[in-house]
Amino acid sequence: MTAPRIAHGGGIAAAAARFGGRPEDWLDLSTGINPIPAILPDVDIAAWHRLPDRQRQDAARLAAAQYYSTANALPLPVPGTQSVIQLLPRFVAAGRRAAVLSPTYGEYARVLENAGLPVDRITDLDAVSDAYGLVVVVNPNNPDGRLFSRATLLDLHARVARTGGLLVVDEAFGDMGPETCLSPLAGDETPGLLVFRSFGKFFGLAGLRLGFVIGETAVLDRIEDGLGPWAVSGPALTIATKLMTSDTSAIRLSIDARKASLDVTLSGAGLEIVGGTGLFSLVDHADAGTLHEGLCRHHILVRPFDYNPRWLRFGLAPDSVADARLAAALTDVIG
């Protein structure tokens, strides 16, 4: 039996259909994406006209290696890391279980279970045993921002790899804290480790559908074969090459400023912030469902969670005007 699809962030059209208003007039705070997209570089006409050739992909891989500091591997571009999550069942040996450190991004467990694999949603790394052929850790975690040090994850990797297992570390929200990322350590010298990176979240270009995976050459080759030829478009590869080799300091400062403004707004409304990353904050509220619906009536969308009815995740607003709009809506709903 196939598990039901997960309601992720976004979904403005559905929210507008229920609560009214034009989708473009809503304030979407339901995703963990930089609300100020990076300025798009020029894309040569050949990128649009021709199928992406190896030279364009190689350039993107070299740019990603520089950006992620991966001296031991060339990151593989993929059409969003969700595409690789769909392939993970292929990496679990027969008779072995999968473990997903939870709660976290729900597609991992869903995809593995739909493939017929036994999956345990564990809540502590100490629960990892030799029974697991695949272990998934999102670091920093979505939605609570739980963060493990490199040393802790390397110790976990040693335990998983000792029995021929694969540790997947999802660093989709790792751009704002590279010092904790395992990306620089992944590659042929660290068998049994596969790292996922998101391009669209930090650069604010999620619609590009681009990510990178970093690991052993043999594993990346299997992923590339599984995705098929021309999986990533020429324009996406070109944009990534140029942005990842550019100065991103202004983007980081902008995200820091937007995050600080969000937290001031939430705290000013009396909300308890219990977690988050540079791109979102998690709030615990006794009546989160009512708060969520009240914000929807103000045409502001945030992210609820069916597995924890007290949680709401707030993404970053794009400017001070949006901050004021959120503050006014919170005052009206909570007051």
Rank of each mutant, 00 (worst) to 15 (best):
residue 2 T to P: 15
residue 8 H to S: 13
residue 18 R to M: 13
residue 18 R to K: 14
residue 19 F to V: 08
residue 19 F to R: 01
residue 21 G to R: 04
residue 22 R to G: 13
residue 24 E to L: 11
residue 31 T to A: 15
residue 34 N to E: 08
residue 40 L to H: 11
residue 42 D to G: 15
residue 48 W to E: 01
residue 48 W to N: 06
residue 49 H to G: 12
residue 53 D to K: 04
residue 57 Q to S: 14
residue 58 D to F: 04
residue 58 D to A: 15
residue 60 A to K: 09
residue 67 Y to L: 13
residue 76 L to D: 05
residue 81 T to E: 04
residue 81 T to K: 01
residue 83 S to F: 00
residue 84 V to Y: 01
residue 88 L to P: 01
residue 90 R to K: 14
residue 94 A to Q: 13
residue 95 G to C: 02
residue 96 R to D: 09
residue 98 A to N: 03
residue 109 A to D: 10
residue 116 G to S: 03
residue 120 D to G: 00
residue 121 R to C: 09
residue 125 L to D: 00
residue 133 G to A: 00
residue 135 V to H: 03
residue 142 N to H: 15
residue 144 D to K: 13
residue 146 R to S: 13
residue 151 A to R: 15
residue 158 A to V: 10
residue 163 T to G: 09
residue 167 L to Y: 04
residue 167 L to T: 00
residue 169 V to I: 07
residue 176 M to L: 11
residue 178 P to Q: 12
residue 184 P to A: 08
residue 186 A to Q: 07
residue 194 L to S: 03
residue 195 V to K: 06
residue 197 R to M: 05
residue 199 F to T: 04
residue 211 G to D: 02
residue 215 G to K: 07
residue 219 V to A: 03
residue 219 V to M: 09
residue 220 L to R: 07
residue 224 E to K: 12
residue 231 A to K: 03
residue 233 S to K: 06
residue 234 G to K: 06
residue 236 A to M: 06
residue 238 T to S: 15
residue 248 T to K: 10
residue 248 T to Q: 14
residue 253 L to E: 15
residue 264 V to M: 13
residue 265 T to E: 09
residue 273 I to Q: 13
residue 274 V to Q: 08
residue 274 V to E: 10
residue 278 G to T: 00
residue 283 V to F: 01
residue 283 V to N: 03
residue 286 A to D: 12
residue 294 G to M: 07
residue 307 Y to L: 10
residue 310 R to A: 11
residue 316 L to N: 01
residue 318 P to Y: 02
residue 322 A to K: 10
residue 334 I to D: 04
